[in-house]
Design a protein around this nucleic acid. Structure first.
Length: 947
RNA sequence: GCGGGUAUGCUGAAAUUGGUAGACAGGCCAGACUUAGGAUCUGGUGUCGCGAGGCGUGUGGGUUCGAGUCCCACUACCCGUACCA
């Protein structure tokens, strides 16, 4: 019988569906194991061969774990909200839900052909109201929460209200936007709106007036991780800074926990390092600088004292070298210190900064700034130093103000040079301040003393410590930890996303009652912003909240007494993907995001597979979201993903036909030099075999190429050139998994993708190599054609158990490429041995089942089994079959391998030495020399040192 | 700048973690069977040399009986990040 994958694969796929082979339920008799793939955004282009790489890898591990007796959860779903469907809707009027459904259907069809063991009964879609009910719910919980820094935990906002009622802000150590100080009486005296405004300062989901990345072309704000190189990640449009009132999530409250959690999870060093940098913890000092009163009345406070502002520095040791101060253009202090005679100049500068796009800001790095006319007093030296305003100081980090130490900070140095400000060296050493600053955090201090403190002679590290103590003691400042991590901006001015369950009363947001969720996305006639510049939801007619009747009503009814306007923004892409892993564990629960029972059993993800591009987006947001849910008592684990593997990208291997410059003639690459200069033109890889192009198909490809002249080489072949590029439609290098399944079968596709190399590594796709995997499966199949009950030979057992050992170890390490080559070796050996023993074959088929499930299931049944191979038992390696009676030792003489010799495994060192020296080849190399040393490493090697 | 990663035949890669470099595949070459099909099977294939043998894992040093693997210095490429005080 021939290996007929075209018949076998669909038959078993249908059978698995019929038998619900991959459906899992809580089963307390078995240990759980949760394998998750990052769910895809269903794009219109469908899957190419790169997409399933991670899915195949996780599928193998899932099947392996199941064979080892685990109850394996392996779900799949869709990150279905997203910009492309909405952009398409704007262009064509096609509702994004329709596009999305169509794309999902296509994805599903493609995924189904590859034979994954997904439990589709647990599928989720982020755009499904039954799903986004819980995205909205989680947001509502965050709205009703604040972060208690002392407890390091989110708590109900009601607790905070109680504390305000009792003691005002005294004793409250909560994450907030601005430090507030008020008494219980002051709190009680506040109006409802004022109270709401105050609480907004503490809520984990809050409305904040913040600088955002505004993308005019997309008509929406973007998160930092959605802006790449100063332009939008989607579409590559310009992005500018704009102050807007936006929903934000107080991710920064969790900065320390996000950092600490990294120690407890099994992720790659590189990925953890990326997150550490993104969180950007830095320990430093905050210090107060007094402003010298000038003609700006705000330089004096209400009680007549000089205005002070706070700076943050990690180099407290350099305070003696501060020669000027710098404020960020957005700093509130700019208006408070600027003198009247500098006002015009300052205003002009601020205006210039404001209109710079993110791209211009990043590209330039030119030194710009303006003097405010004001001076501050260095608290350590008492010197008056000028206050400047410059865009190199960022409003969002630290306090938006710095003390400049030009001698030891390259940015301050560049600024000082440009504006001719003094530079005072503070560290001994061999450096030239005319050339640049000395930034290293090392060396011995000088020029650093006042009447009470001298750092001179101390090293940098000790000086920082000494200055911290001094500043704290003198009440000049405090030790402070700063994080680079910012709060996540959570509003998008778009249609295709989760609506916020929020309505506005007296301008303040209120959450819809929990029982009213989900708040369904309304229908709109137009997906563009409204004529008044409102987000697309402004086009919805039925979009107002009737508080009394608890329902969505026509916005014509808004009276701001019982009917109120609903929020017009929607949530960003990461909203729906932040807790999907936990929803899979209880996907149909209408009462809760996840039941305690389901969370207790399935817990968090044991193995997570996905691309490294999510390092600073999804993987931070989900960790944050999960920590919040843990504080809220919804889930039990602090971290969502225990182990994470980043699969590499499959790159495209593009092909180019060479076109003679300025003509429509195409010439084979090997003879192109004879014809003159050529331009490479992308041609579709699907009609190029290796480098040889099918000329006929080229002509048929598009009308453009129908009648062009093609010059072949002497053999009548047309040779193309090749290059590795990203796999994309525009480069005509996309290879579709359906085509591979059609030609070779899903098992071959799976095997080949894994055989290509280590999963984490990126590599170009080359269809040419797939024949090897296909041939292997045919050889594998042939082994099973005449199974017998014959007892296995020692060689059979050795080949099998060697394989069991290798494959088991390799799967545990996700080294699938080496596991597959071990299969190839074993099958070659067993074929050579003419092995037909069922005892061997039955175990062999279980071993390959995770990799090639269809052929395994077929052969498993052909061997007479009636239940699925998925529930077989993973074979155990018996060492007794592997023991060798003799070992082939390589013999090195003078450090070089000269020959091998067979020696009994139990030979003693002396016996080995005698045997080696007696060997004729040894004599050849030793002749005329003396053996100075004899090295024998049992089971490894023999080495003779001669001289 | 900073952080991370990679570098081995014509190609994808392997090397039990300090022990025969190139397993396993693809490609190519030769042959067999087929009366030319992108089928199957066998053998060969790092490089120089007729040969014995020499050389060979990005470069240069070092440690070791022995280095792709460890240490030091450097180069190239890829990814992330970007005035974070």
């Amino acid at each position: 019988m021939e290996y007929n994958f075209r018949e076998i694969e669909p038959r078993w796929q249908a059978q698995w569906v019929k038998d619900q082979t991959y459906k899992v339920e809580i089963d307390h008799k078995k240990p759980k194991y949760y394998v998750l793939d990052m769910f895809p955004y269903p794009s219109g282009a469908g899957l190419h061969v790169g997409h399933p790489l991670g899915y195949i890898a996780s599928d193998i591990f899932s099947r392996y774990k199941r064979l080892c007796g685990f109850n394996v959860l392996h779900p799949m779903g869709y990150d279905a909200y997203g910009l492309p469907a909405e952009q398409y809707a704007i262009q064509t009027g096609q509702h994004p839900a329709i596009t999305t459904d169509k794309n999902i259907a296509r994805y599903r069809e493609q995924l189904d052909r590859i034979g994954f063991c997904f439990d589709w009964s647990r599928e989720v879609r982020t755009c499904d109201p039954g799903y986004y009910k819980w995205t909205q719910w989680a947001f509502a919980q965050m709205f009703e929460a604040y972060y208690d820094n002392d407890a390091q935990k989110a708590k109900p906002i009601a607790d905070l209200v109680a504390r305000f009622e009792a003691n005002g802000s005294k004793g409250v150590n909560a994450a907030c936007s601005v430090e507030l100080d008020f008494t219980a009486e002051a709190w009680k005296a506040k109006t409802e709106v004022e109270k709401q405004q105050t609480l907004m300062n503490y809520r984990i989901a809050y409305l904040g007036e913040t600088m955002v990345n505004w993308c005019p072309m997309l008509g929406t704000v973007l998160a930092n991780d959605e802006v790449v190189n100063g332009v939008s990640e989607r579409g590559g449009y310009p992005v500018e800074q704009k102050l807007m009132r936006q929903w934000c999530l107080r991710v920064s409250a969790y900065a320390q926990r996000l950092l600490d959690g990294l120690e407890t999870i099994d992720w790659t060093y590189a990925l953890k390092e990326t997150q550490r940098n993104w969180i950007g913890r830095s320990e430093g000092t905050e210090a107060q600088f007094k402003v010298v009163p000038n003609d700006n009345p705000q330089t004096l406070t209400a009680d007549g004292k000089p205005l002070e502002f706070t700076i943050f520095t990690t180099r407290a040791d350099t305070m003696f070298g501060v020669t000027f101060m710098v404020l960020a253009p957005e700093s509130e202090y700019v208006q408070m210190v600027t003198t009247s005679d500098h006002k015009a100049e300052v205003e002009a500068y601020l205006d210039k900064c404001k209109h710079k796009t993110e791209l211009e800001r990043q590209a330039g790095h030119e030194v710009t700034g303006v003097f405010s006319g004001a001076y501050a007093i260095n608290p350590i030296t008492g010197d008056e130093i000028p206050i400047w305003i410059a865009e190199y100081v960022l409003a969002g980090y630290g306090t938006g103000a710095i003390m400049a130490v030009p001698a030891h900070d390259s940015r301050d140095w560049a600024f000082a040079k440009h504006f001719n400000l003094p530079i005072i060296p503070l560290i001994e050493g061999d450096y030239d301040l005319n050339e640049g600053s000395f930034d290293a955090k090392e060396g011995i201090m000088k020029n650093s003393s006042n009447a009470e403190l001298s750092l001179n002679g101390l090293c940098v590290k000790d000086s920082i410590q000494a200055m911290k103590e001094y500043v704290t003691r003198k009440g000049l400042g405090r030790v402070k930890v700063n994080y680079r991590l910012r709060d996540a901006i959570f509003s998008r001015q778009r249609y295709w996303g989760e609506p916020f369950p929020i309505y506005y009363k007296d301008g303040m947001p209120y959450v819809l009652p929990e029982e009213c969720l989900p708040l369904q996305l309304p229908e709109v006639k137009n997906f563009k912003p409204t004529s008044t510049g409102e987000p697309p939801l402004g086009n919805a007619q039925v979009w107002a909240w009737d508080e009394a009747n608890k329902k969505v009503v026509d916005k014509a009814l808004i009276d701001n007494k019982t009917v109120f306007p609903l929020e017009l923004c929607t949530m960003p892409g990461f909203a729906g993907s932040s807790a999907y892993y936990t929803r899979y564990t209880d996907p149909h629960n209408d009462e809760a995001l996840v039941s305690h029972e389901a969370n207790e059993y399935w817990d968090n993800v044991d193995l997570y597979l996905g691309g490294s591009e999510h390092a600073t987006g999804h993987l931070i947001y989900s960790r944050f979201w999960n920590k919040f849910l843990k504080d809220w008592g919804v889930v039990k684990s602090e971290e969502p993903f225990k182990k994470l593997i980043n699969q590499g990208m499959i790159q495209g291997s593009s092909r180019f036909a060479l076109r003679l410059k300025g003509t429509q003639k195409y010439v084979s690459a090997d003879i192109a030099a004879e014809y003159g200069e050529c331009d490479p033109v992308h041609v579709d890889v699907n009609f190029v075999n290796g480098l040889e192009m099918d000329v006929e198909k080229f002509h048929q490809w598009t009308p453009e190429f129908k009648d062009v002249e093609v010059i072949c080489n002497a053999d009548g072949k047309f040779i193309t050139t090749a290059a590795v590029e990203k796999m994309s439609k525009s480069k005509y290098n996309v290879v579709n998994p359906d085509d591979i399944c059609e030609r070779y079968g899903a098992d071959t596709l799976r095997l080949y993708e894994m055989f290509l190399g280590p999963i984490e590594q990126s590599k170009p796709w080359d269809t040419a190599g797939i024949d090897g995997a296909f041939r292997f499966l045919k050889k594998f199949w042939n082994l099973y054609q005449t199974p017998t009950d014959a007892a296995p030979s020692a060689d059979n057992l050795k080949s099998l158990h060697k394989l069991i050992k290798k494959v088991t170890g390799d799967i545990e390490q996700f080294s699938y490429n080496t596991a597959i080559s071990a299969f190839m070796v074993a099958v070659n050996e067993l074929t050579q041995q003419k092995c037909s023993s069922k005892a061997i074959l039955e175990q062999l088929v279980v071993l390959i089942a995770p990799f090639a499930p269809h052929i395994a299931e077929e052969l498993w049944h052909q061997l007479g089994n009636t239940t699925t191979v998925c529930d077989a038992q993973w074979p155990k390696c018996e060492e007794k079959y592997l023991v060798e009676s003799t070992i082939k030792y390589p013999v090195q003489i003078g450090g070089k391998m000269r020959f091998t010799i067979d020696i009994p495994a139990d030979a003693t060192s002396d016996e080995v030495q005698a045997a080696v020296l007696a060997h004729p080849d040894a004599q050849k190399w030793i002749a005329g020399k003396t053996v100075r040393k004899f090295i024998f490493v049992p089971k490894k090697i023999v080495n003779l040192v001669v001289g």
